[in-house]
Structure formats: C-alpha cells, structure tokens
Design a protein around this nucleic acid. Structure first.
Lengths: 348, 348
DNA sequence: AAATCGACCTTGACCGGTTTACCGACGCGG
DNA sequence: CCGCGTCGGTAAACCGGTCAAGGTCGATTT
C-alpha cells in the first residue's frame, strides 16, 4: 500500500552533506566524529547539529576501508542446530561476549557450520573479506586444524579452551581437571564407590581433559567403577548412556554429566526405570544453567559463570586486537553446588 | 614465542595484485569475479588461477561501498541473556535463518539488547552505518514502536509475527489462534473442564492473540475455568504460576504453557506438590523442542517447525531486499503432538 | 617589523573494489 | 574496400569515509 512513502530514491546522506550544512570541509566532520583535536568546540557543535538534523551516521564500510579497522568479531559454531537450541551454555556464552562488544560498539558475526572444515572456510572468507577483525574459537579438540589454519591466515583469535589446545593463540580456560576431581571427591565423601561419567564427544579437548582427571581421581581414591561414556552432548544420547549405565551388572550409584541437558535426560531415565534420585542413584550436572533448578529433584551441579567466561573471552580478543602478546587466562574453576540430586548411596 | 612468524606487515593482497599476476586490468578481475560478460573464458581462468595462488578474496567493505549492496542482516533480541539460554526456540530460529543466509553467503549480525528502545538505537546504527541490508523483527508487541521507527528509517525488514502487528512490513506468522483452539478442544475432548493457561508477557503480540483465542474456545465449549497467568517466559515464573494455579481452590485439571521451558518447570512443580501427571493434572507444552522428550513423563506439545519458520523469515527478507511488495506469509499451524503428559482427568 | 608558533581548518591522495565510457580488433555484408 | 556491430578488454571516475600535508590567521617572540 503506502510502502511507497519511504521507497523514494532518497539518496543516502553522506559526510559531504553534513559538511556542506555545517559550512566546513568533510575532513573537519571526520575529525569531529572521531573526536580528535583540530576542530574548535563551536564548529564541533555545529557539525553535530548538522549531522543530527540530517540523521547522518558514518558509513562503516567506508570507514573500515580506509583505516583497516573492523567493527565485528566472528564466532562460528560447529554443532547441529537442534542440539544448540537445547544447550543453555551457548546463549549465555554469546550474551557474555555481547556484553563486552556492545561497549565498543562492535558486533558479533555468528555462523552455524556443519563441521570444522566448513568453519575454516567461513573464517577464511570472513578474514579475507575483512568482515571481522578477529575471531573466537570454541569446542577445540586435540590437534584442531583450525589453530594452524587461522594462524597461517594471521587471524587474531582467542580460543575458549585449555592452553594446550590453543596452540599459539591467546586463550581463556577453566580448570576442568580440578573441578572433576572435586566432583569425584564429593561423591566419594558421600560414600559412593561406583561413579560413572557421561561425557561429550571423546575428541573434544575438554572431554579429554575431564576424562583424564576423572580416571585419575577414581584411581587415587581407590574407587570401583570409573567408566566414561562419550556422547554428542544431546539429551537423547545422554538418556541412552544413562540407560546403559544403570542397566549394567554393577550399576553405578552416582553419575557425573558433562552438561545440564544430559543430566536432565538422565533424571528422566531414572524415573522411567523406576529408580529414585538421589536414593538409588545420585546425579551431578555440569554448567549449572537454570535448567538444574527446574527439575524435581533439583540437580546438583558443577557451577560455572558462563556469561562471565564469554565476557572474558571477548575482553581478551580486544587485547589481541591491540597487539598484545598471546597469553592464557584462567577463569574461576567450576564449583560444586549441591542440590537435591546427590546424597549418600542407599545401604546395600 | 613464534607468534611473530605471521605477525609481519604482510600487506593484504588486493585486486590489483591479482590483476597484475593475471596480466589484466583490475576491471577485468572484477568482471570475472562477479561473473558478468566482458572477459573470455581463457582470461577468466587465468584470473581465477591468479586469485587462487595469491589467496585473494574481494574486500567486502570495498565492494559494498561502491555497489551499496550489503551482505548481512540484523537480528536484535530483547530478552534477558539468562532466559535466552534456556529458550530452545531462539537457537532453532537462528539456525533456520542461517540455513538460508548461508546459501547467499550472507551473515547474521546478532545483538542482545535490554529493551525495545535500545533495539531501535541498534537498528538505526546498523542501518545508517550500512552494516545490514535489512533486519528481522521478533517479539512484536501491540503498537510496537519498532515498526514505525524502522519504517521511518526505510529499513527493509521482515517481522516474525501476525500481520496485525507487523504494520506495513512483510511478515511470517503461525496461526496461533487456531492452534490454541485445537489445544483446548483436545483437552476438552479428553474430558477436562477446568483448563488454565500460563502465557508469556501479556504485552507480547502473540500472547494477546493466544489469550483471546483461548478465552473464546473456553467460552464456546462452555468450560469452567479459562484463566491465563502471564509470565516472562522463564522457568521460574512458569513454576510460580503453576504453583499458584494448582494451589487454588478449584484447581485446573489441565494447563497449557506458552513455551517448553515453563512446561518443564510446571512438571517439576507437580512432583513437588505430590501430584501425578497426567492422572491429577495434564500439561501441554508449546513449541515442542526436544526438551519435551527428555522429561518423565514426556510432554505433550503443540508442535512447530521453528527451524523452518526461521528459514521462511529469511527467505522473505530476501524478497523484500529484492524490492518485493510487503506481504504476509503463513507458516504451518502448530499441531498437537500427544505424549505422556495429557490424559483424561481422574474421576472426581 | 619580521619571524615563529599554535590552533583551526582545507585539500587531495588514498583505501579496494565496481562501473561506465571508450577503444582496438575482428568478422561480415554490401 | 568501407562501414558497422560485437567481443574482449582498459582507463578513470566513483563509492564515502580517513589522514597526512599544507594553508590562514591572529598572537607571541625576537
């Protein structure tokens, strides 16, 4: 209908228009808008006034064309869409990143990719096309090809993960090893001797680290079980893994999960199998999103400020963009938050 | 350490380098890369070869500077981060959008904002700064200021929501009214006469529509209850609302939720109150993310292809960018998927 | 009085592409 | 042999900013 109203040619207003209106050169406008010395307070005010009247804002492509600075950072995520939707971790992580980007009026370029290969293509295209000034890497795995590739391209990046995985990149990490140990010690202290674990993909860097720590702790405490079942992080596989564990001959009396979703799925499996939590089996989640408080019983979890973690990653990326040397930053270690899903095992 | 290796000045390779290497002018390279007529197959091949060797890709800022075309679309979301993480809807929606953007090598610019006012600022900055070629609007509410504002700015946009909310914008919507009616009819057919509903924020456009349809259906069928409790979509408020409903004098025998998270929270409340689902109370979720299958009992839900919805929105945005006239597109109506949380009410 | 200086502002070259106007060569009908 | 259209390509203007170099001008120094 009246969509024509705004559809006119309406040449976009440029710096030249503003300059003309303020009676100065476009150089002056540029100076004013990047608040650099060289224009008096009076003219500065006139320029801003003119810009306001015309509704002008600098064309960011034009700006980044000449000064090479880019106003966006990239984040590619290689997990299936269906799974991501259920993974509270990501949105919280993204929110944390945003919270830092926003104050530098920088944007997040997000892309969901199928696999690491595709991510490399995307990152390369972003970098070559100067769409991003740098990138954030998540879900590092052992010998991740993204590390050498991005290094070859010279992409400034920050990795969310252990220094041993990040190659030469600056990274931010949590001490999952210590956290796993704490989890196991806690369950052992409650009296559990058969503890199992449901992890994410075995190739994922932090899975490897947690598994190693888990097995070490089990050994150290002289516990009986210590199995880890790897999954794809989805609720479905979490349920399957739980079923397998609880149906086994010497079923564990406690299960540690690598994320919240699988713990929730596991909880529903116990109900389905007629087991009671925590009397028959204790469950311990990881990440501690609010999901853990929505179940019945509520889920004990290794608690973790994912939002803050994302913010830290973003801050470090700005360091890197500012030519800082690569460095590793440790975020607070996930801490145990006991709730209703853990208790001493039933006496046999 | 050796981070210096790639840190050299390493002037970025430009179209000029490619042209030189292929022995042609940069105009020819441009023609070749946008596959337009004017270069022979032979030179075209030489040019691509040269570009490949040098690892060149066009600088997108430079490109969009001259042809005004922009390669990204904007999506600002005004919900608290903590809540978003738990809302599977969003990531699925975003994934659907991505699936379409990707094939046009277009990116998604994402921003989490505090409120509608801030979103308007962000949208204006994006548009003025030519960061985006268009935007996607979600969570429309009645008399949403974003509609007139973006129209004033001339931002091409697609709204995810009912035509009555979208003003002159192209929109994609699901017939929530019909879906609510189906939900109520189904529960009534099972024998329920006291049905309540836990909705999202009352000001949200689709809450209004669903509430109206809910009340109409309740009246039409001559049912007893028909209360709607508005929340902020969070699990916490969903739990609180459920508690209030189930503790009331004439407690409902069935509850319809406006998203999955609140239904999950509601389920845990029933357990906490010693009620059994579906014997004492039936629960019906909305959206049907995989979360519904992770609970015990599994949740009946109004099922909905959120991924496809996102994809449709993105496709329509490209129509709009191609100067198509505003139009409204109806996505498939959410359909009932009965599972374990709904059954005839216990005989009094 | 001439030279120096700093504050303020203008000019014009660039950033890396796209696009338009133009040009040479070649094939072809008259 | 000439004029004409087409194909393949080039040169230069342009997109909208930034930035270094330079120009004015009144005030201060020598």
């Amino acid at each position: 209908m009246d969509s024509e109203v705004t559809a006119g040619p309406a040449r976009r207003v440029t710096i030249k228009d503003v300059a003309a209106r303020a009676g100065v050169s476009k150089g002056a406008v540029s100076l004013a808008f990047n608040d650099r010395p060289g224009v008096s307070q009076a003219t500065r005010a006139r320029i801003f006034e003119a810009a306001r009247e015309l509704g002008w804002a600098p064309h960011l492509s034009a700006r980044s064309l000449s000064n090479a600075r880019v106003d966006a950072v990239g984040l590619a995520i290689a997990r299936p869409a269906r799974m991501l939707g259920l993974e509270p971790w990501f949105m919280e992580f993204v929110s944390g990143i945003e919270s830092v980007l926003v104050e530098r009026s920088c944007s997040l370029l997000l892309r969901l990719v199928r696999d690491v290969r595709e991510e490399i293509e995307v990152q390369e295209a972003w970098w070559q096309g100067r769409q991003v000034g740098g990138s954030i890497l998540v879900d590092l795995h052992d010998g991740d090809p993204r590390v050498p590739e991005l290094q070859r391209l010279g992409v400034p990046a920050v990795a969310a993960g252990h220094p041993s995985l990040a190659g030469g990149f600056t990274c931010v990490w949590t001490d999952d090893g210590t956290a796993v140990t704490e989890a196991v010690r806690y369950l052992a202290a409650l009296g559990h001797r058969r503890i199992a674990r449901v992890s994410g993909p075995a190739t994922l860097g932090h899975s490897v680290i947690r598994t190693a720590a888990f097995e070490a702790a089990v050994r150290e405490l002289g516990l009986a079980d210590g199995r880890t079942v790897a999954t794809d992080f989805s609720g479905e596989e979490g349920a399957r893994a739980t079923r397998a564990l609880l149906a086994s001959a010497d079923r564990p009396t406690a299960v540690i999960y690598d994320n919240d979703i699988m713990a929730v799925a596991g909880l529903s499996v116990t109900a389905e199998m007629g087991l009671s939590v925590p009397a028959d089996v204790s469950l311990l989640a990881w990440d501690d999103s609010q999901l853990c408080q929505l179940t019945h019983p509520t889920l004990s979890a290794m608690s973790h400020d994912v939002f803050g973690f994302g913010a830290e990653v973003a801050r470090r990326l700005f360091d890197v963009l500012g030519q800082a040397a690569p460095s590793a930053h440790q975020a607070p270690t996930p801490a145990l938050t006991p709730r209703g899903s853990t208790a001493p095992p039933r006496r046999p």
